[in-house]
Nucleic acid binder design. Structure first.
Length: 642
DNA sequence: CTTAGGG
DNA sequence: CCCTAAG
């Protein structure tokens, strides 16, 4: 999990509640260069701050923090005495724009019994943000003012939350990149981003701390830096002040400021937007190193949706302790960590900025968002994976039966990294290392991969499959099956298969010698009574480096017959049923295969019948399906359709 | 995991 | 056949 680092400011005086967990901004001036870091602590009954336990942190990580604030330096949270809340997922909604002050809802406000709904209502009503916070705001503000002044003297103009963070830190903050990439797009939306809550907060702050404001505005004599510092000093009014101060600046100056702040040029000419950006830039700091992740998230909408909800401060799940923490990206990030990182990134990094983006609303509009294809995701991760060594991303779940797929996936990822993936194959007690690829999909790698792998891999692969087939297939079974089949079915299908097999063998011999021997029996037999779905018939073979064929297993007449039979019995669409009953012996035919075959049968049957029942003579290779069967198929089809 | 469809 | 999206 992320490392939680930071110092805790002594603000115990601010809290009068019972045990609480809160996040304190990291404000040590010693650790320059560190982005804002929060430490999770609990305020115990006596007011002392107790470092959060791992357990608590974990809980926090599972918590959804929602920050609706515009320049949210404020962390709102609820705390109750109920440590062991049944609610694992807590949504924290932070609607305050103001102060580094941590808004909180005293335990008293939320009876432990209070339902989530009620809690959220309470929050929505603003209890959380104001009524409770106010009592100590004055005190706090004074404190802050002093602090700010100190900091100012020290020359720490920048970090509001992180006085210790040098300008550079801000500039390098990854959010920023993301922000700007979409500047144009979001521009308008941002302008229209009136966040009710924030506004309220601002007003509130103004009213309550007018004296402070005055101070600030006074301080903000110099256009740029001063303004910034003012904003930085007081998270509370950062935005307000920022706007006020920046208001006087011409667009050009704003742009310059922007550049100075972010180290990036901007063409935006919108004052408001610029001001916001600048303010944000100064206020927000995050170390979400993975740009791609964020992009991904945006695409995935998931986060945005959340953010959106937050913005509207709609539903708040409050239960027991709410804890939040910022997680720094750990190098070895798993999916989990990744997710959390993102979450924190959103929170602290300013993803909430998108909150009211109209841009994303379009995507959200559709109830069912069109999710990016896996391939797309993979591509993304491949592109950016540079930062992460995640390869353990594949859930254990995938690892077993759907091994094919998971393997494929991992391959693609790893291939992007140019990492050679191998796996151990046990062979007669000893283990041999073979390219990971070899077992992909019915012992067949993807076409492109094959191409990349070249002859060598193919050899290995073949070897592997041969090995497996050896282990799995028993000659006796095969032969018996063959006999059975021959008697039952027409001779037509057989020749075709044999043909393929033979040619394959011949070609293969040039490439690999030992494989053939192993395969030989199977080719001859090729009937699928094998317990495994590795059938050599379908084994891809490289011919001059080109993929000649996919694992293809021609449908025999008997199979077709069984299929038709099965359909008539169980009905089309009950492929799994049919497979279970009629194809129990053909392990290589999956329900999908059946479905596909049926589809083809329908196609051919309807295509053919109108004209002639004569020729099932399709162009070549394809099996000649007896007219009778086709008729049967048609009947069934019609029957089914009704 | 199973289906339905597109490729 | 393969690959995916949806249930």
């Amino acid at each position: 999990m992320g490392t939680v680092v930071g110092t805790v400011e002594d603000r115990r005086d601010m809290f009068e509640g019972s045990a609480q967990t809160r996040i304190t901004p990291f404000s040590s001036t010693n650790q320059i260069g560190n982005p804002v870091v929060y430490k999770l602590v609990r305020v115990s009954g006596d007011g002392s701050l107790v470092p959060a336990t791992d357990e608590e942190i974990l809980e926090v990580n599972e918590t959804d923090m929602h920050i609706a604030s515009d320049a949210c330096q404020t962390v709102g949270y609820l705390a109750t005495d109920e440590e062991n809340s049944e609610v694992n997922e807590t949504d924290m909604h932070i609607a305050s724009d103001a102060c580094q002050t941590v808004g909180y809802l005293p335990a008293e406000v939320i009876p432990s019994r209070l339902s989530q709904l009620e809690s959220s209502e309470a929050i929505n009503s603003g209890l959380l943000q104001y009524d409770n916070v106010q009592p100590y705001t004055d005190q706090y503000n004074e404190e802050m003012s002093q602090k700010v002044e100190q900091e100012e003297r020290l020359g720490n103009v920048h970090g509001s939350q992180m006085p210790s963070t040098p300008p550079d830190a801000n500039i390098q903050c990854s959010n920023e990149n993301n922000f700007f990439e979409e500047d144009q797009v979001h521009h308008e939306a941002l302008l229209q981003e009136p966040i009710p809550f924030s506004l309220n907060v601002q007003d509130e702050c103004k009213m309550n701390e007018s004296d402070k404001i005055e101070r600030c505005s006074n301080a903000a004599t110099s256009p740029k830096e001063t303004t910034l510092s003012a904003a930085a000093k007081k998270p509370d009014f950062s935005r307000v002040r920022g706007e006020i101060c920046l208001d006087n600046l011409p667009i050009k100056a704003l742009q310059e400021t922007f550049r100075a702040t972010f180290g990036r040029e901007t063409t935006v000419k919108d004052k408001t937007w610029l001001k916001r950006r600048i303010a944000m830039g100064l206020i927000n700091s995050c170390d979400v190193p993975t740009t791609n992740l964020r992009v991904k998230d945006n695409k995935l909408v998931g986060n945005q949706e959340k953010s959106n909800d937050v913005t509207n401060a709609i539903s708040n799940d409050m239960g027991g302790d709410v804890r939040a923490t910022k997680v720094k990206d750990a190098p070895s990030s798993t999916d989990h960590v990744k997710g959390h990182s993102n979450a924190s990134g959103n929170i602290l990094g300013g993803n909430h900025y998108y909150v009211s983006d109209d841009y994303s609303s379009e995507q959200r509009a559709a109830k069912r968002v069109r999710k990016p294809t896996r391939r797309y995701i993979e591509e993304l991760s491949e592109t950016d994976e540079k930062q992460q060594n995640e390869k353990s991303m594949i859930p254990s779940k995938d690892q077993r039966l759907s091994a094919e797929k998971s393997e494929v996936r991992s391959i693609s990822v790893s291939s992007g990294k140019r990492v050679t993936v191998t796996r151990m194959v046990s062979l007669a007690g000893s283990e041999i290392e073979v390219p990971y690829v070899s077992h992909v999909r019915r012992s067949r790698p993807r076409e492109n991969i094959m191409a990349l792998m070249g002859c060598h891999s193919s050899c290995l692969e073949d070897k592997t499959s041969a090995t497996e087939s050896n282990l799995n297939l028993s000659p006796s079974q095969l032969s018996s099956d063959v006999v059975n089949r021959d008697s039952v079915e027409n001779s037509a299908s057989r020749p075709v298969q044999k043909e393929f097999a033979t040619s394959d063998d011949n070609n293969e011999e040039h490439i690999v010698s030992e494989v053939d021997q192993d395969m030989e029996p199977e080719d001859t037999e090729s009937s699928g009574n094998s317990s495994d779905d590795n059938n050599n018939i379908g084994v891809p073979i490289m011919q001059g480096g080109t993929l000649r064929r996919k694992h293809h297993r021609a449908w025999t007449l008997s199979e077709v017959t069984k299929l038709v039979e099965g359909v008539s019995k169980y009905g089309a669409g009950k492929w799994s049923e049919i497979k279970k009953h009629s194809f129990s012996s053909y392990s290589y035919r999956t329900s999908v295969d059946l479905k596909d075959k049926w589809r083809n049968l329908l196609k051919s049957s309807f295509a053919q019948s109108p004209s002639h029942s004569t020729g099932n003579l399709k162009k070549h290779g394809s099996m000649h399906i007896p007219t009778q069967i086709l008729l049967q198929v048609r009947e069934l089809a019609e029957k089914q359709s009704q």
